[in-house]
Every structure is written in C-alpha cells, then in structure tokens.
Amino acid sequence: DEAVILPAPPDLSVHSTNMKHILTWSPVIVPGETVNYSVEYQGEYERYYTSSHWIPSSWCSSISTPECNVTDDITATVAYNFRVKAILGTQSSAWSTLKELFNRNSTVLTSPRMKIIKDGYHLIVEFEDMGPYFEFNVTYWKKSPNSQELYKIVREGGSLEHLVTMEAGAEYCVKAQTVVEIIERSSAFNQVECIRAQDESHLL
C-alpha cells in the first residue's frame, strides 16, 4: 500500500433504515486542506472464496464528505465489510474497516405512512413508495359487533389501490405494516385509520 501519512478514518459504522444503508465515519482533518475518501466493500463471497478481494463502492470512489450511501453495494442478505481510506493529493491513509460486519437483515423497519380515501363506496389506500423491496400487509375490518378482520397484500407503494367496496353508511378501519420478503421481516403496524361510507340516500 501507499505511504501511510494521513490517519485512517475512525469510527466506521453502517446506519440502516428501511433497507437504505448509509456508511459513516469521523472526518480526517488537515487544516486548510480538503481530504477525500475512497470506499470499498466485500461480501461473504469475496471474504471466503477469493483472496479477500475488495470492490470499489458504486458511488464513493472519491468523495469529500464522511458519509456514503452503500445501498446499491449491499445487494445480498449476507455479512458485508467496508473499508475507507483518506486521500490528500498523492498521499493516502491506511484503510480502516468496520468493527462488526453488517447484514441488511438488521435494518430498522418503520411502520408505513398510509393514506385512505373513498371514491363513492370504494375504499382506496395509498402507501408511500419505499422502494422495490417493500410490500404492505393491510388488515381492514368493518366497525360493527363481531366483524371479521380481512387481509390484503399491496405490492407497491406510490399508487391508489382499491381495498374494499363498502356497505352504505358503515365505518371501516385499516392498519398496515411493511413486509420485506428477502430478509423475512415486517415492521410494526401503523396507526389505525377509519372512514365512513356515505349513506345510500346520497346516491339517489
């Protein structure tokens, strides 16, 4: 490796929420200079099946901020390691690596933002678009004695999806959680929301 003059960037760690993974570290300060950083990664395959090969990160080969979105690098549910070095002109620091390997199945899953509307008797639900990995497990029921809970999977966010055709004048309630199949996990349910269908007279 290049001559080691700059200190290796300390405190490397990954922060992951809803399958968005951000690698951060503490900056290397050289007064009056702009220090750049280079990020590389390896998955379980690179660690055990190659001579510990490292791959340049998709977006952070030479950046000046002490943070890198590594979502496009972590693309399998195995343990990943990252390394970062500081670069100043022709000088480079040693690499620093994660203290603990990161697996995306540890991402924090928040409950989904949801909007329910009605179009006549039709109850429509819309979720925020959370990316390709997210489906929404929706539970809904008519608010009446011994009513039954019903379930539906909404495949993607960002569009109005028909949930149920309501009975005139009845109130319906909805709650939902995100489901991320590839890590076999779900979020907590969100706040229950209710809406009342218009009465029959309205349509005459």
């Binding site: 379980e44 693309t75 399998a76 195995v78």
Partner: peptide, 11 residues
C-alpha cells in the same frame, strides 16, 4: 459489482 451481487446471493 454485478457478479458480486449474484455470487453473494447464491451463497
């Protein structure tokens, strides 16, 4: 990167 995604997914 493309091959790494597939190799690690295969693992």
């Amino acid at each position: 990167r493309g091959l790494s995604t597939i190799a690690n997914s295969f693992l």
